[in-house]
Write a protein that binds this DNA or RNA. Structure first.
Lengths: 239, 239
DNA sequence: GGGCGATCGAACCGATCGGTTCGAATATTT
DNA sequence: AAATATTCGAACCGATCGGTTCGATCGCCC
């Protein structure tokens, strides 16, 4: 939050105070992007028309071209925003140093829930489809989205290793394995529209618990087993 | 000679002998589809133009519309063919009842190699992008491609269970887990154009071996361990 | 060798595309 | 209230789209 301080000013007090310079009103900008979202996301880049967006956003075409140089730039701005909202806060729980297994389960469930939700699936489809003609866009989406999440998982695993709970040779690979185990085919099914509906909570729970179990069986240490059984005993004593 | 006679002739011998009926020549049909492949695959459905395909196929536009009713139908025919060639023979090795671990490794490597190859990635991207506007197309692609492969993996795992080598509660889930472990993030990286090149043989080998190890550690039985150590001893005795 | 028919190729259709232009309308500042 | 500047809305641009039409052409079959 450095260069956009001025922009954020207008956002902070919520209201529009003073007339913004041409193409500088964040409210109108959001309005345009919101219209663009509705059109781009469910038609794809090519099939979406600027006239559709004009209609959907309730903003004149001329105004759109004051805020965005062309169709491609508007699309990129939209994708950038989508990426931000999709991955925001998704990895927060990895910051806490709670019980390892339950943290992994919780995180895995949030991950699977998010990635397979109808809206996010559509957004990803749009990005993937556009990656044919704009590879850098897809790459940046991945880099600033899934890749950053992956890095956080790596950091989390390293912390667990340091605590002596895990033993992993290739942490990077292990992080991918964990993520994929939590999705277990759901991503591909959703992205290809084979699944018409997002998976249920129960299904995700089942998958994630199985995946975490597999993961810990492979990488968990003696110490982890000890701690877990201790906790189990404590729990049993409680009841 | 009546029309039916001519049709029978063409059906009997695979080659072009005599003039095929309009829109019935398999050679020309392939020629059209080949042009369509080049254009559709690297531009996507919307951005591809029928004039491009005309040029690329070296076939007049009128002729194309004799063979295919419209752009969508041609696209569907292409995708159907692509699906066929991509998944053909991919799962053959699962039919043999060789050493379990090495069969899984071999299969996993072929799978990862294929799915992440530049051509297949592009094709998948095209299908995914088109799944926005033609969900049934994406669904059928998945169903007759990845899904059939998945079913074969399930069957293979069931056979191994019967042989007492594996113990699995949810075989369907296990099959997904295995597949995803073999890909371990590669699919997402490729599909989003984050990876510009397909992964190397070495990388795939590393990933698959790790994944198979994890899988067998989770689902392998005592008997599997015994058999494997026996084989190891036999190998050592040989050398 | 004559006729039948598939293909060619180019012109053509109406529609729509991304993008521009410009006067009218609107709202803010002084 | 006058001056100023953003937005509106609709017309407009050239290009291209998917799809059709039709006479010219060429090759197979009788």
């Amino acid at each position: 939050m450095t260069e956009t301080d001025k922009d954020q000013c207008d956002l902070l007090d919520g209201l529009r105070r003073g007339r913004p310079a041409a193409g500088q009103d964040p409210v109108k900008r959001s309005q345009i992007i919101e219209g663009a979202r509705r059109v781009f996301i469910d038609k794809g880049f090519e099939a979406a028309s600027m006239n559709d967006i004009t209609r959907e956003a309730g903003v004149s075409k001329g105004t759109i071209y004051v805020y965005f140089a062309n169709k491609e730039e508007l699309f990129e701005a939209l994708i950038e925003e989508e990426r931000g909202t999709i991955f925001k806060n998704m990895y927060d729980m990895l910051d806490r140093a709670d019980d390892l297994r339950e943290t992994l389960v919780k995180f895995g469930k949030v991950l699977a829930l998010k990635i397979t939700s109808a809206k996010v699936v559509q957004a990803q489809r749009t990005v993937i489809g556009a990656s044919d003609r704009m590879p850098e866009l897809g790459a940046r989406f991945y880099e600033r989205g899934p890749k950053r999440g992956h890095d956080k998982v790596v950091a989390f695993l390293n912390a667990a290793i340091e605590r002596g709970l895990l033993k992993i040779d290739d942490v990077d690979l292990a992080a991918y394995q964990f993520t994929e185990l939590c999705l277990a085919g759901l991503f591909r099914q959703c992205i290809f529209a084979y699944r018409t509906k997002a998976p249920s909570q129960d299904e995700i729970d089942h998958i994630v618990r199985s995946g975490v179990g597999m993961f810990l069986k492979a990488y968990g240490t003696e110490r982890l087993a000890t701690e877990e059984s201790t906790q189990t005993i404590a729990l049993e004593a409680k009841s």
